[in-house]
């Protein structure tokens, strides 16, 4: 069974005003097949955690570690992490001019598996996933994210999640900017991916909305760069009622 362990993770970022510490000792263990939701107010460091796991060069790990099945992830390059089984569904996926979705998916799949996917089953898989995500066939020949609407970009992220079959996926604010219909389609895709591959999920969100459609096993409240409280799904319900004020006051005093 695969496990992703985050141990006492301290992360900083370079800004114009100098080095800024963002994560102050994050501890989190995700087992295969588990869904963890990380909830927190804006600026609490949720996205920093997501990008640090993926290896974005902007973030510096000052101490602590991220282990995937015991292997240190923080020393790997971005592409090595992906090949090791990590996936980040981004909040704002960028446009890649000149590269079609088809070409991109095949290249990524080949990179991750180490061999090119058998052509016939691959085309079938892509078509099937696109159909279930209600993506028009014409998407396949369009350049990656070029001219995509916000909802189309998110669906394209989930399409990759389904096809690349990672061990662990981090979904960074995948629910933001989606109307309820699009949210359902995206949530179905995530649930389908989990059913098919049994991956572990780290769901990063500001709102509880997405948790109606993707049921978390654990909820962590993230405040000021660390986990302030943990619990089961009931914690999300409480946050929906009370908001983050309780935690913000505590952190201000502390």
């Amino acid at each position: 069974m695969s496990v992703l362990e985050i141990k006492d993770l301290h992360v900083s970022v370079e800004t114009d005003q100098g080095t800024k510490q963002i994560l102050h000792g994050v501890n989190l263990t995700i087992n295969e097949g588990e869904i963890h939701a990380i909830m927190g107010p804006n600026g609490s460091g949720k996205s920093t955690l997501a990008y640090t796991i993926a290896g974005h060069p902007k973030y510096t790990v000052d101490s602590g570690s991220i282990l995937l099945d015991g292997e240190e992830v923080t020393t790997m390059t971005v592409d090595q992490r992906a090949r090791a089984g990590l996936f980040l569904a981004m909040q704002y996926p960028v446009e890649i001019p000149g590269v079609t979705v088809t070409n991109f998916l095949r290249t990524a799949k080949t990179a991750i598996d180490g061999t090119a996917p058998p052509i016939r089953t691959w085309i079938k898989d892509v078509r099937e996933s696109m159909k279930q995500l209600r993506m028009d066939k014409s998407f396949a020949e369009r350049n990656v994210n070029e001219g995509f609407s916000g909802g189309e970009k998110k669906r394209n992220e989930i399409l990759q999640l389904e096809l690349l079959k990672p061990k662990f996926a981090v979904l960074d604010e995948t629910d933001s900017g989606l109307d309820v219909d699009a949210l359902k389609i995206v949530a179905e895709g995530v649930n389908r991916a989990k059913e098919n591959t049994g991956l572990g999920l780290l769901l990063i969100t500001h709102y509880t909305r997405i948790l109606r459609y993707i049921k978390p096993d654990f909820v962590h409240v993230f405040v000021d760069g660390r986990i302030a409280e943990q619990g089961g799904p009931e914690l999300a319900d409480r946050l929906e009622d009370e908001g983050y004020d309780r935690f913000l006051t505590e952190s201000n005093v502390g």
């Binding site: 993926a54 890649i96 991109f104 990179a111």
Partner: peptide, 14 residues
């Protein structure tokens, strides 16, 4: 760099 990061995060080398 953001495009590079995106492609690399899908397993593709630089």
């Amino acid at each position: 760099d953001e495009q590079l990061f995106y492609l690399q995060s899908r397993g593709i080398t630089e």
